[in-house]
């Protein structure tokens, strides 16, 4: 797959305009009590860009994604979605927490997929997808179901529409979760370790859906341990350790010629475990 070429020649996405990031974080920091989990992070996500965030456990990569979605409020710095400040408002020169409705409005372009799927177990696969279409977008049941079926078809699960999550495999659950997020027509998708909770043989089907999304030009930020996937699909890889971004660049550069010692160690540990 020549996907890695997309770093410098994003020819698959003719509408792409450089310089206007969909997501931008400037100097964000976050602490849980005494523990500083993010410090001074700068992060940009351009339209149609696919960025994979890698790093050891506890490096802050999931927290970064959650702060970018304001599921965790960040303490310092700023996050902008489509140029709009997320989570806070300037009022009389002071920064105050934005109302929930304002937060919802600013992050509307963001779709999120979680490690543990977080499907609603009392709703069928189709209902999981149609719920927000009906409650938020005000679609009629009929329209929402047509739209929901289209999304399930997109992830290859149309025939499972009437199943409850408990009767789906982990991979199927995650694909339903992706369909649920796609139904709201996000401009950017965040994936928080989307395959980490899956049995190894189910990882592929989820990664395939994500590859297709990347191919279709979706802007994506993916926290992952799947190095092979990152190497093939990412335009840029970000390596984090101890709450900081250590290195960032095209996968071929980062994986072949890591500059920092910590990334070298991290890659060596990974290779030792995976190449036998």
């Amino acid at each position: 797959m020549p996907m890695a070429d997309a770093v410098t020649t994003p020819t698959t996405t003719p509408h792409q305009t450089h310089g206007e990031p969909i997501v931008e974080a400037r100097g964000i920091g976050k602490s849980f009590g005494e523990l500083e989990v993010l410090s001074d992070i700068d992060f940009r996500l351009e339209p149609s860009e696919v960025v994979c965030v890698i790093g050891p456990s506890g490096s802050g990569k999931s927290t970064l994604l959650r702060c970018l979605a304001f599921l965790e409020p960040y303490d310092h710095g700023s996050v902008y979605i489509d140029g709009q400040l997320l989570g806070y408002e300037e009022r009389g020169g002071m920064r105050v927490r934005a109302r929930e409705s304002r937060v919802d409005a600013v992050r509307a372009p963001v779709g999120m997929v979680f490690q543990h799927f977080h499907l609603w177990p009392h709703r069928t696969a189709l209902e999981n997808v149609t719920e927000a279409l009906r409650l938020v977008n005000g679609l009629s049941r009929r329209d929402a179901e047509a739209e929901g079926m289209a999304m399930l078809e997109r992830v290859g699960l149309a025939e499972r529409a009437g199943h409850f999550p408990e009767s789906l495999s982990g991979g199927q659950k995650q694909r339903v979760a992706i369909a649920r997020a796609l139904a709201m027509q996000p401009r950017v998708m965040f994936f928080d370790e989307p395959t980490s909770a899956l049995d190894p043989e189910l990882v592929g089907e989820v990664l395939d859906v994500m590859k297709q999304l990347a191919h279709d030009g979706m802007t994506m930020a993916i926290v992952t341990h799947e190095m092979g996937f990152a190497a093939k699909v990412a335009d840029r890889v970000v390596f984090m350790d101890q709450g900081r971004i250590i290195e960032s660049g095209p996968p071929e550069t980062l994986f072949r010629t890591p500059r920092s010692e910590r990334l070298q160690q991290f890659l060596n540990t990974w290779r030792e475990r995976h190449i036998d």
Partner: peptide, 25 residues
Amino acid sequence: KGQLEAARMLGISPWHALTRIQIPQ
């Protein structure tokens, strides 16, 4: 808690999250 985070990320209001997701379960 993640089920509610998923709802928030889709723009579902806290009231709807309560009545449609939390209370039925």
